[in-house]
């Protein structure tokens, strides 16, 4: 797919080759210009493989009868590219020669995309292109997304701010809940101390309980987060018609959530319990 269509893919970015019209004709003949259109265009214009369309470089020209007639040879799904997600452009893929003829602008490519197999391969390809190809500069698609749209940076910072506020607020909330829960048991704790249960045992049992509550809470939170991400992705993939993942629950995020919850829980439990066990049992009993 890359060898046949790969060079053509970036030409979508040159501008919008106008669609002059769609005709549900017979299958393309072998020598005709063949193109691939993206799924959104196929849906919106009710086009299918084998349909013939007239392409022109300028809007309206195709309607007047000029332009190239092309056969739709394939319908492609849009890539998960953050830099493309908010664009309403339709993507059409042509063979490079056909595109040059259509635009009358030979030997000129503004941008092309290469799909790589992973992070190290991406870096290696970037380095080689940047070293070898004078006049070109290779970017990662994520960098392009950030560079071309400040919105991503703003949203990213906004997310971090929300995350920070959420962590601080949930930490305070957790501490308050645990203080209340421990406070509710001040008489139970007093009774335990009178029975001869050591301070260490009381603190340990409360810290253990807090850790368990945190663990269960983080598991529930992760589950809710995952469900939320499924709903968010389902909604926005529908809105933007893209396979892009808008919300992710990665193992790293889960790990951070669980560790953070346990650290906060244990800390809050420790603070709450030590505060109580330092109080004499008779004072806890209100005497």
């Amino acid at each position: 797919m890359l060898s046949r269509w790969g060079l053509v893919a970036p030409l979508i970015c040159l501008g919008a080759p106008a669609i002059g019209g769609a005709q549900a004709n017979q299958a393309a003949t072998r020598n005709q210009t063949s193109i691939a259109i993206d799924e959104r265009l196929a849906d919106d214009a009710h086009l299918r493989v084998g349909d013939r369309v007239v392409l022109s470089a300028a809007p309206g020209v195709g309607v007047a009868g000029r332009g190239d007639t092309a056969v739709i040879a394939a319908i492609t799904k849009q890539d998960a590219d953050p830099s493309e997600v908010a664009r309403d452009d339709y993507g059409i893929r042509l063979h490079l020669g056909d595109l040059q003829r259509l635009t009358g602008d030979p030997d000129r490519v503004h941008r092309f995309a290469i799909r790589t197999v992973g992070g190290p391969a991406t870096d290696s390809v970037r380095a080689r292109i940047n070293d070898a190809a004078f006049g070109f500069h290779a970017y990662r698609s994520a960098d392009v997304a950030v560079g071309t749209s400040r919105t991503f940076q703003v949203v990213s910072r906004f997310h971090r701010a929300i995350a920070l506020i959420t962590i601080v607020a949930s930490g305070i909330f957790l501490l308050c809940i645990l203080l209340l829960r421990v406070e509710e048991r001040r008489r139970d704790i007093a009774a335990l101390r009178l029975m001869g249960i050591s301070r260490r045992s009381v603190v340990w049992s409360i810290v253990l309980e807090a850790a368990l509550i945190s663990l269960v809470g983080s598991a529930l939170g992760t589950g809710l987060g995952w469900l939320g991400s499924v709903l968010i992705n389902w909604h926005y993939r529908g809105v933007y018609r893209t396979p892009l993942a808008f919300a992710l629950v990665t193992s790293h995020i889960v790990l951070v959530a669980v560790v953070l919850a346990i650290v906060l829980g244990v800390g809050a439990g420790y603070l709450a319990s030590t505060r109580l066990v330092r109080t004499p049992p008779l004072t806890l009993f209100g005497r």
Partner: peptide, 22 residues
Amino acid sequence: DREATEFRLRHIGFVFQRFYLM
């Protein structure tokens, strides 16, 4: 305090008005 706690544990039984069971 620690000594008294240990002593209560091993030598004295307490029964309260409100039971205080866990």
